[in-house]
Design a protein around this nucleic acid. Structure first.
Lengths: 152, 152
DNA sequence: CTTTATGCAAAGTTTTTGCAGATCA
DNA sequence: TGATCTGCAAAAACTTTGCATAAAG
């Protein structure tokens, strides 16, 4: 049983369809399945987690297809990768308009989600309140470079 | 032949030594070797790159030890991990005071390094000049959480 | 009916681990 | 000397790929 699709989900679906169209790819049953499984995942998830979820739910999609679909969903900017210092990739939804950032403890790997504020100083204040000792930060933009814009 | 250690390198070395001391770990030949190889690496590097470099230079340190040392150097906050959407970890020096950020193209994986500015708007202006179309960003703090501060 | 997608299983990469012998404090 | 380290090789974890068959448009 699948949850009702939200407006956001449908918007993402359109984006994905247009991406596939532009690339001359087909909207197959497997792609649909993976898309909706991804939409139902919350927060960060790893490729293998999705594989397991699909297995448990008997979605009938193979590991290979899931990996292939994740790459596409990434290409279509439906999901993005996040950096958690583990050896496997982590993904999360791009659409999540309530963008959040991450503070990771280098000792225990715990992650604190931080809302999107406007000023750097405010982040530091917030993290200080959480008793998180900041050693540094990294800002990571994703998008399309000049070259790829032209190819498109 | 090894390059002359800079002031920064020595400061990092002290930090590492203190970390080892606190943890009851020994400053072994292998740890020294890996430390200095890491100091000589520039920009981002992957664990396997270091393995290859040590092999070429006949440093006599095994792959296992290199992986183990990288974890420690990470724990000691001598290096940090960066997120480049490839399947292996990337590291860079923490000490690099000329902190920079990254903009990655989701199509070709090209990375633009962006200097550390003060305001978000300035980043967008800069990237616009580079004809990089920003889809989103992620801010990633690293440090020590409350719990681990107490344990320490 | 042509093109693209899929599953499978095998291969490829990256990382971790157990253990016996070596090294450090 | 007693604790921690190391290399080795094997295993584990994650990801990709080739190919024959299936499905989509």
């Amino acid at each position: 049983m699948r949850k009702k699709a939200t407006h956001q989900h449908l918007a993402e679906h359109t984006k994905y369809r247009q991406y596939l169209l532009k690339k001359g790819l087909k909207l197959s049953r497997a792609r649909e399945t993976v898309f909706w499984e991804v939409m139902e995942a919350h927060g960060h998830f790893a490729a293998e987690e999705l594989v397991k979820q699909c297995a448990i739910r008997n979605r009938g999609v193979s590991r290979a297809t899931i990996y292939r679909s994740l790459k596409e969903l990434f290409g279509a900017a439906v999901i993005r990768e996040t950096a958690f210092g583990e050896k496997h990739h982590h993904f999360e939804h791009v659409y999540d308009e309530k963008l959040h950032h991450h503070a990771r403890c280098i000792h225990c790997y715990k992650i604190i989600e931080v809302p999107c504020l406007q000023e750097y100083k405010k982040y530091l204040e917030l993290l200080k309140k959480e008793h998180f000792q900041v050693l540094g930060h990294e800002l990571h933009f994703y998008g399309t470079c000049q070259n790829c814009l032209e190819i498109k």
